[in-house]
Structures are given as structure tokens and as C-alpha cells.
């Protein structure tokens, strides 16, 4: 059998030919004959035809000038022989603050009401690298596990307890004033009542993103200091304390786009972007040259499509990609 590549080439040639004005009934007959020759021909043809029909919607792009703009922008992308200028590092970025760069096990609690009960037998859930899992709880709450995550859940009449042993999870907590929802990170206890938030466990800090309601971040044994984190805020908790930053709700939602299988970057250092993407893929991307690591990228990418990501990079940036079985290496061109 001919490879799909050849068939696709033939199908595209047919479609392009039919797109011309002088399409005779004889040509139509030949095309029909080609299509009925093999289902392989037909499915390749349908696929291209459907995508091409979609391209007609380019007309719907806002403003007549958009095309020109796109052309200019894309040309810039294609011809960018130099890495984008180093824009100033945004020191406002929470993650860059030295306060956070403290090793040690992190201690946090999200508290809305306090009720601690001894551990219950727990159910465990885990996700492999690259997968996302939604776990409905019997209390009506839902937990969404991001890539490479381990949690244990125990729900009793007095408490709802989750241990986040590894990774990141998003919690949609059903309101229940009598049963606090407790997320434990490391040895600590974390509690909420009825909100939506995510908790991500990293090497030296914990990141809490709240999209609805309010939670309290607290160090378990130090009830005297706590940070309230409300909707639209991001909290980073390290050994020294908690940093709370307000963000536009849109940005907060973007941080949670992993739930749809995407990662979003804004002028992110390539080294950071690659580290983020590597969380989702067994096949790791390695940066060979610091100059590559400091290039900046933005965009919305499928978290599990590392190959597609580097292909886009190679098209837009002076990067040479070398892939083999063991991984993908990015060199400076």
C-alpha cells in the first residue's frame, strides 16, 4: 500500500485542481474514479476538503486590515534572525521573589473554619505524566488532578481530607459548613469550605490559585499568621511566609488552562516554558545553550504536544532542533 503521505499529496492535488475554474465533467469523472479506487483515497480527500472548507472562514476575521497585519506579523516571525530583545524581567512576578527561594518543606494551611480530626482510611488517586483526571467526590466536590500527581482522599462525616503528596490539583469544593475541606501539603493541614482553587506543590514552595470564593493559607502550627486569598489571587507560600498577588481573573484562569490540556505563556523565558512543558511529557526537551533558554515565547500550546511546540519554535526562532529516541535537544542556530 502506498503511504499516507503519497495519497495525501494526490488528494491535495485533486482538490487544488478542482479549485480551478475549468473543471470539466471529464475531470470530475476521473476524480470519482480515483476516490472509489480505495477508501484510503476517500478518507484522505474528505479530511483535506473539510479543513479547506474551514479556511474559508478566514473571511470572518475581524477588520479588513487584519490580513495585512497577519502577513507582516508572520513575516517578522519567519525572518527573526535574532532572539527577541530581552525585555526587562518583571520583578513583580511573584515567582521571582527571593522570599520564596527557600528550601525546606513547606508548610501551609488554607483555613476557613478549623476542625482537625485524625486520619481516615484514604482512597488514592494518581495521574501519569501527561494525563489529567477528574475525580468526583461523594460529597459533591470535584478534584481535577494535573499531570504526575498523587493524592489521597478521605471523606468522613466530620471532615473532608485530601493529601496532596505530589503535583497539582484543582478543587471545586461543595459547600458544607460542617465539614471543612482540608488539603494537606507535606505534613501540614489545609482547610476550606466551599470554593474553587488549585494547589500546586513545587520543590520549595506551594502555589495556590483561587478562582472562586476565598481560602485561608496558614502555617499549621502557627495559627497567629494567615493569609486570606480571594477569587482572582495567587498565593505563593514558602518557608518564610506567603505572598499574595491579585491578578485579573482572566490571567488566573489562564494559569488553570492545564485543565483543558493547554499551557499558556506570556513572554516567558524559554527555559521556564520548557520546564513547564516537560512536566507533561515523558519525552523531555533539553536546552543546550543558555542563549536559547533566555529567548522569550508566548502563546497557547497543547501541553502534551512537545513535538509540535518545538516545531513552532524552530519556525519562529533561531533554534535548531535535534530529536532522537531519548529526547529533544534545542541548539542555537
Amino acid at each position: 500500500m502506498r503511504s499516507h503521505r503519497e495519497i495525501e499529496e494526490a488528494a491535495a492535488a485533486w482538490l487544488a485542481r478542482r479549485d480551478r475554474e475549468e473543471w470539466s465533467s471529464a475531470a470530475e469523472a476521473t476524480l470519482r474514479a480515483w476516490l472509489s479506487e480505495s477508501v484510503a483515497h476517500r478518507v484522505a480527500f474528505i479530511r483535506l476538503e473539510a479543513a479547506w472548507a474551514e479556511s474559508g472562514r478566514l473571511k470572518g476575521l475581524p477588520a479588513a486590515g487584519y490580513g495585512a497585519e497577519l502577513c507582516v506579523a508572520a513575516q517578522r516571525a519567519n525572518s527573526s534572525a535574532t532572539p527577541p530583545a530581552q525585555t526587562s524581567v518583571r520583578s513583580s512576578r511573584v515567582g521571582r521573589l527571593p522570599l520564596i527561594a527557600i528550601a525546606a518543606s513547606i508548610i501551609i494551611a488554607l483555613i476557613v473554619g478549623a476542625l482537625f480530626v485524625t486520619a481516615h482510611p484514604a482512597a488514592s488517586y494518581r495521574t501519569a505524566i501527561g494525563s489529567i483526571k477528574e475525580v468526583p467526590m461523594k460529597d459533591g466536590s470535584t478534584i481535577t488532578l494535573n499531570t504526575d500527581t498523587d493524592i489521597r482522599v478521605a471523606i468522613s462525616v466530620t471532615e473532608r481530607r485530601v493529601d496532596l503528596d505530589k503535583g497539582e490539583a484543582f478543587f471545586e469544593v461543595a459547600k458544607d459548613l460542617n465539614r471543612p475541606f482540608v488539603v494537606h501539603i507535606g505534613d501540614e493541614r489545609v482547610i476550606a469550605v466551599g470554593t474553587k482553587f488549585s494547589v500546586r506543590r513545587e520543590a520549595d514552595h506551594v502555589r495556590v490559585v483561587v478562582t472562586e470564593g476565598r481560602v485561608r493559607v496558614e502555617r499549621a502550627e502557627a495559627h497567629h499568621a494567615a493569609a486570606l486569598v480571594s477569587k482572582g489571587s495567587v498565593a505563593l507560600a514558602g518557608a518564610a511566609g506567603v505572598l499574595v498577588q491579585d491578578e485579573a481573573l482572566l490571567e488566573v484562569e489562564e494559569r488553570l488552562s492545564w485543565r483543558q490540556g493547554f499551557v499558556v505563556f506570556h513572554e516567558t523565558r524559554l527555559s521556564d516554558a520548557v520546564a513547564e512543558l516537560n512536566r507533561y511529557n515523558r519525552r523531555q526537551i533539553v536546552i543546550d545553550d543558555p542563549a536559547v533558554g533566555s529567548m522569550r515565547v508566548g502563546g497557547r500550546f497543547r501541553s502534551d504536544n512537545a513535538a509540535g511546540f518545538v516545531r513552532l519554535l524552530a519556525e519562529a526562532l533561531p533554534i535548531r532542533v535535534v530529536s532522537d529516541e531519548s529526547g529533544i535537544v534545542l541548539h542555537h542556530q
Binding site: A73, A77, V217, F309
Partner: peptide
């Protein structure tokens, strides 16, 4: 369209989002 729906690279945008003033608060544990 079918294979990589929704992927987009917009590093061509050099202006980025509006710079915001750093507005955050710090709560120290002690």
C-alpha cells in the same frame, strides 16, 4: 486544524501585556 487544534505561537508579539505595577502583599509566618 484537526491535529493541533488551538495551538498557537504568539512570540511575535513584542509588546506583551500591559505592564502592571507590582501589587502584592506579604504575610510572614511570624
Amino acid at each position: 486544524f484537526f491535529g493541533e487544534r488551538g495551538m498557537q505561537l504568539d512570540n511575535i508579539r513584542t509588546t506583551g501585556r500591559k505592564e502592571r505595577k507590582a501589587e502584592f502583599k506579604v504575610v510572614r509566618w511570624r
